[in-house]
Design a protein around this nucleic acid. Sequence first.
DNA 1: CGTTTGACAATAT
DNA 2: GATATTGCCAAAC
Length: 110
Amino acid sequence: MALDKNFFQDVYEVVKLVPEGRVTTYGAIAQYLGLKSSARMVGWAMNQAHVVSGVPAHRVVNRNGLLTGKHHFETPQAMQLRLEQEGIIIVNDKVQNFDTLVWYPVKELL
DNA sequence: CGTTTGACAATAT
DNA sequence: GATATTGCCAAAC
């Protein structure tokens, strides 16, 4: 984890730690980094995520379980497609069983 | 160098 | 319950 200096780097590491078939939220990541409501920075970081390889940004959704950032993917369908590929059911751009699939780094890695 | 905005979230009205 | 406001940090303008 190592919060060197790059906020983004930490975000990427946490996202990489997300288990397959599982999703996380911006707030969860922000919380894990010690912040409380700077989920926007996480979103910012994800904007750069497409530049970095190995960052499963498709596993990051908003606290509502909605695929808000699908538009930032190669194709808007890529996000939903990848999630479904991992066994996650997406309906109307929303993660089904989100409560069960959500993965909190603070809680799991603690 | 000051202002705006961004893949959000939590609180307040 | 839904809309409006605030917080947070960094990058783009």
